[in-house]
Amino acid sequence: MEKNIKFILNGKEVEVTVHPVKTLLKVLREDLGHTEVKAGCEQGECGSCTVIIDGKIVNSCIFPVGQAEGSSIITIAGLCKEGELHPIQKIFIEEGAVQCGFCTPGIILAVKVLLDRTLSPGDEEIREAVSGNLCRCTGYSKIFSAIKKAAVYMRTKK
């Protein structure tokens, strides 16, 4: 029982005809070619598949695409503007907050939502904001300092 589902993906309207219980992750990767959204645990544990839906982060691996109808979805590819990386992305690279890179798209999207809410996050707030994203390489300290630096950068630029 496939269904026509329309939503906004990184600012552009897309349309798919799929079963509404298919996960958003699979639709993004398999039907729309958006492999920047990473498939990790596929059980809502690791956060690699994080996307922003209507301003909130969710695990796309346990999100039925039927509920995406009419919503606005942002993947990591949606943060680049005219080929230019988002300041959070640039600072993650500068700070060496990326090692294998698998968790990075999800973490940066979680940080984006945090910094949309506040540009002066407390230490605990930062840790909480990325607590749904597992990184098995860096031990988080470089990620943490990159987030602090990104907040300062975006605050002073504003």
């Binding site: 809502g44 969710v58 695990n59 979680a110 607590s131």
Partner: peptide, 8 residues
């Protein structure tokens, strides 16, 4: 859960 889970 996590922020992602709590949102859902």
């Amino acid at each position: 859960g996590t922020p992602q889970i709590a949102n859902r």
